[in-house]
Simulated scan of single mutants.
Amino acid sequence: MSQEVSELSDVIPYYFFSLVSSCLSLSAVLVIFSLGTWGVLGIIVFSFYVVIPYLLFAVPVQVLFNKHPKKFSLIYFCLYNFFSLLAVFIYSSLLNFNFSMDILTTKNYYAISLLAALFFWFWDSVFLQKKSSVS
């Protein structure tokens, strides 16, 4: 039991670095595509909005994937993309108080979902998926 706790405490900083890097990356891209009107303050604000779905949807999947690590696995990317589509749909529906399927017809929904999955997959592969090479 103490060995498992020790192993977990060794990887927690890597989960944190992966999460923070993903939030900052996605927030920076969102600010840039919103014509840069927010600046650095926008990156900070968007990061607080982005961290919640990442914590609720991506980190549990990341913990599961870390049991069988594979760097830059396309299967992991596809699964992150699936959960990202789900997370962005739920989160945007809650923020807009609109549970209609209209969001599925917008390009922004797919762009944000894909970018969120891509950034999380990339930083997860950089920080956590250490034991295996490209698959």
Rank of each mutant, 00 (worst) to 15 (best):
F16T: 02
V45C: 05
L55H: 01
C23H: 08
T37K: 14
V40W: 15
G42Q: 02
I12K: 10
L19S: 08
V45P: 00
L55N: 02
F48A: 07
I44R: 04
F46C: 06
I44A: 15
V45H: 06
F33N: 13
I43Y: 06
Y15F: 14
I52C: 00
I52Y: 01
F46W: 03
F46Q: 12
I44E: 08
F33G: 02
A28V: 07
I12D: 04
V51N: 02
L35T: 13
F48K: 04
W38I: 02
W38N: 12
I12F: 13
F17S: 13
G42C: 10
L55C: 12
P13R: 03
V45L: 15
L30M: 13
I12N: 07
F48Q: 07
L19R: 01
I44G: 12
G36D: 09
V51I: 14
V29M: 08
S21D: 06
G36L: 02
S25D: 09
V50R: 01
S21P: 03
V40C: 10
Y14S: 08
G36S: 07
S18T: 12
C23P: 05
I32S: 03
Y14M: 10
L19F: 11
F48P: 04
S22M: 00
S21N: 07
P53H: 09
L41I: 11
T37P: 02
L41C: 13
I43F: 03
Y14C: 07
F48C: 09
I12M: 14
C23I: 00
F33M: 09
S27L: 14
W38H: 15
